[in-house]
Design a protein around this nucleic acid. Structure first.
Lengths: 346, 346
DNA sequence: AGGTGTCGCGGAAACGGTTCCGCCGCCGGC
DNA sequence: GCCGGCGGCGGAACCGTTTCCGCGACACCT
């Protein structure tokens, strides 16, 4: 690591190539209105001196940083679901030469907007062009962000109980069709006593629950839903759900779990009680996380295309940046059933 | 979202507070050499105008960006292991007002350094102050990065077959003591026929293998190691390992799996063949991933403190930035056994 | 031949901060 | 009473780019 000598500037290059600084700048930015010969002379000088333009000075003039911030709310760390969204964002960002700052923020759902402690990244002006909101997002935080007058896109499924006109952009997956497909498929496999379980405090769970109810009604079947709010992990919710299902008479032959983690909890409790999936009880998840493949047999579940959500978020933010006044919208991505091996044909 | 009016600059503030720009700048940067009364007048003006300094202009003068890049090599997305490292980096960075750009890079282990396609973030000068290298890192990439003369710290365990003098900083966990503890513990529970399995192509696996061998030797027990390289997933490696273990006579009573994913593969294959953990065969993992808690019963494994690795990386990079000429070093973090329920007392 | 449009180019101005120089006034020492 | 030092402060210069203005040369048209 050389001790930093005086860095080479655009003026050094101009001098070396015997041209004006404007010309060097033009070459740097695509070379419009510069003759072939001059371009080559300048490029040679750039190579010879090992010149690389200073990113900060550039950004100052450009008036935007080409950096967006992926802001994770109220999570300990980005586990696989959000990690995949982040990767989707990064992939797309890289292809269009944008950069992604990863930041986290924690706050209570109840604190007033102006008491939320923002991460340092949001305290400077011009540090990031826009925001991508993921994690569990409460309305107070959205209000706070809106005060900052910085463009942002939210991952809509994780927005909790937001009321009033939605004056921001969001990208969501539509869990409804996927869950409909899942329930129909289960019925198609001959099941009639099909339970659903998931804490409908969460809006994303409500959608799945409604899809379940609709399909059951459509087939004139009695819904068996366990949707009580419980302040426990998904895994433990699954344990509890399995208990309720087993206690129910007549016993359901299939369980639609609110998500893959709940399904995992159901699975382990069933196994502990000596029951096998799918021989004794069939099981369906939601999300298609990595863990679904870990299960044995692999879990039939509903796929959410997380990388595509990330990409769509980034794309939408960019559109907003380019057209600040366009009307707010929501982009909905489809979900679909992934049939694996946990639903038995009756 | 208001259409951007002319942004407020430091000169506007100076005019409003009837002071010079220098004074405003001094107030902004800690207020040394400014009287109490003036400070207050300036601060009032800042509040009144809603002035926030422009990040880019600041950075240009400061000569560093206060941004580091977390660079993930050759991974599809940040798995929970790396996600936790990233979170450790972010946590610490936030506390000292540094920012973390997340970027990914993919390259073959064999391509020559100058043919590796670097992510755009590294192509500008001054965009990031330093690099944090994670993922699976091959020597060709390290050589390429070194040419760039940008300070970096590598997550050492993931550095593959680097030879020669190590002229960069790294943070690693020392898997040896944790694995030693794990094997000793297993022996302490009365096991004598203890198998080890893991692809020792990977340097981190080699360390665990050596620890296993050392303890077995220390107790005068015959090692039963399955370390063949196999181009399959960890999970499938576990399947294969379980097969080998079951075929072996006399049959081992415990399996030390190279990592938690391998353990998971072993577990599912054992269960398929009608064997229970730990009643029929005991099992130990390594890494202490989220999945270890998913297993049933929860997996006894070796904990790697991933957040601390992240924090240490960030801290080390900062030291390097402040003292560019200090000698290179490696920071080693301890690992330790986490006893849960998959080793049976014989 | 003269006007006019276009291309290529040089260099000044601008961006929004920080840094530094120099001035003023006050205080303390002799 | 004079002088030196220093705290407080204003404002010019500067950082390394981009942008813009203006100029000369040349081609084309009338």
């Amino acid at each position: 690591m050389k001790v930093a000598a005086k860095p080479i500037t655009i003026r050094d290059v101009a001098r070396a190539a015997a041209v004006g600084v404007g010309t060097v700048s033009r070459v740097l930015n695509g070379g419009a209105h510069v003759s072939r010969a001059t371009t080559e002379r300048v490029e040679a000088a750039i190579r010879r001196l090992g010149f690389r333009p200073n990113a900060q000075a550039r950004r100052m003039l450009r008036r935007h940083s080409e950096i967006v911030c992926f802001l994770l709310s109220n999570r300990d760390f980005p586990h696989t679901f959000h990690a995949r969204i982040l990767q989707g964002v990064e992939n797309y960002a890289r292809s269009i030469r944008q950069h992604v700052i990863f930041a986290a923020v924690h706050y209570g759902a109840e604190v007033s907007p102006d008491r939320i402690h923002l991460p340092p990244i949001l305290q400077e002006r011009g540090m990031v062009d826009g925001l991508l909101l993921a994690g569990t997002i409460y309305p107070n935080f959205l209000h706070r962000i809106q005060e900052m007058e910085i463009p942002f896109v939210a991952f809509g499924n994780n927005v909790m109980e937001y009321e009033g006109p939605r004056n921001f952009d969001q990208v969501s997956y539509d869990g409804y069709p996927g869950e409909v497909e899942a329930v129909r498929y289960t019925i198609g496999q001959g099941h009639r006593l099909i339970a659903f379980g998931g804490d409908t405090t969460y809006p994303w769970m409500r959608v799945r629950h409604e899809a379940y109810l609709a399909v059951m009604r459509e087939h004139k079947l009695n819904p068996i839903a366990f949707t009580a709010p419980r302040p426990v992990s998904n895994l433990e919710y699954g344990d509890w759900l399995a208990g309720r299902v087993l206690a129910r008479r007549p016993r359901p032959t299939a369980v639609i779990a609110g998500n893959d983690e709940v399904a995992f909890g159901v699975w382990r409790t069933l196994r502990r009680r000596g029951l096998r999936v799918p021989e004794d009880i069939s099981l369906v998840g939601f999300d298609d996380r990595e863990e679904a493949m870990l299960m044995d047999p692999p879990l039939t579940t509903v796929r959410v295309r997380k990388e595509e959500i990330g990409q769509a978020c980034m794309r939408m933010l960019l559109e907003r940046l380019h057209h600040p006044t366009m009307p707010y919208s929501e982009r909905l991505l489809a979900t679909e059933l992934v049939v694996r091996d946990t639903v038995k044909k009756l």
